[in-house]
């Protein structure tokens, strides 16, 4: 009786466990296995085991290091820009109740827009001949002739960071706004009575009040942006040169551009490790935050 009682929970968990195994872990293991072969998409059946040959070759070239750096730059730029924009808008919305509902609805539009549509919007925005950004900068006298935002290696990364942040910042706003509204107004009233400046109120009341949601949001933004493919691929295809060749684009180019599935899979495994590292950092930060809150 006791045996059946102890096996029952496992039996009940088994279908879900098997499903997760089949959907998530089998492809991961399969990809890892391909990464230690010389698999080519067009002669897949004759792939041969080459050990860590793909990894050695990737590590021997600067391309991987450059790509990791581009991924870091893209991710950091996107996180900073979308978080600060989201925070700024959330603070503005928190101060006023006028049209808050309408503004919230309007804010969801970029967030609800499919990635591909976002890339098309920004493709036109950045167009050197007809793009509104150049038009505005021309009118303001900042630029004399149309700048090629997406084609210059000086501005290509900045351009995709701006486009990605535009898509992501509404999520930050909505979540931070929820956090801001959870801060008791009495704390601000008491601080005002004590003569605290606006900066002091922000520093000592607002920031601690949204600390946990901010950490969660920052981590999610980091994970999302480090995996993003659509923007860098559709807007710049990793170029010019390797200016926007983030890890996901590099993986795609190897696996499906050059058909080198083995090397592409090795890059996918490296991407996975990169994501795991981020998750690990997130868990540590979250735990420390919880410990600090409890203390």
């Amino acid at each position: 009786m006791s045996t059946s009682r102890s096996t029952l929970p496992w039996l009940l968990l088994a279908p879900a466990g098997l499903l997760i195994l089949a959907i998530i872990y089998v492809p991961l293991v399969y990809s890892a296995l391909i990464s230690i072969t010389d698999a080519h998409l067009l002669r897949f059946s004759s792939a041969e085991f080459i050990g860590f040959g793909n990894y050695e070759r990737l590590l021997a070239r600067n391309r991987l290091a450059t790509s990791l750096w581009r991924t870091f730059t893209y991710s950091a730029g996107t996180v900073v820009l979308s978080f600060l924009t989201g925070l700024f808008v959330a603070l503005l919305l928190n101060r006023t109740t006028v049209l808050r509902g309408l503004t919230r609805t309007l804010l969801i539009i970029p967030w609800a827009t499919p990635w591909l549509v976002v890339t098309l919007i920004w493709y036109v925005m950045f167009n050197p001949q007809i793009g509104p950004i150049n038009e505005v900068l021309n009118l303001l006298g900042v630029l004399e002739e149309g700048h090629s935002w997406l084609y210059s290696s000086q501005t290509a990364m900045l351009s995709i960071v701006i486009a990605t942040s535009w898509r992501l910042f509404p999520a930050v706003t909505l979540i931070l706004l929820a956090g801001l509204q959870g801060i008791p107004p009495e704390q601000y009233e008491a601080a005002e009575v004590d003569g605290a400046s606006a900066w002091a109120r922000f520093r000592y009341i607002t920031v601690p009040g949204i600390r946990t949601v901010s950490i969660t949001m920052l981590t999610l933004l980091t994970i999302w942006s480090s995996k993003l493919f659509t923007m860098a691929w559709t807007l710049t295809q990793g170029g010019p040169g390797d200016a926007t060749r983030v890890l996901s684009v590099y993986t795609y180019q190897e696996a499906f551009g050059s058909n080198r599935l083995g090397r592409g899979s090795a890059l996918a495994v490296i991407s996975l490790l990169f994501s795991l590292l981020l998750v690990f950092v997130y868990l540590i930060v979250l735990r420390r935050d919880e410990e600090k809150s409890e203390a």
Partner: peptide, 8 residues
Amino acid sequence: NRLVEVLY
């Protein structure tokens, strides 16, 4: 990739 660098 290199041609675009030359041009832009």
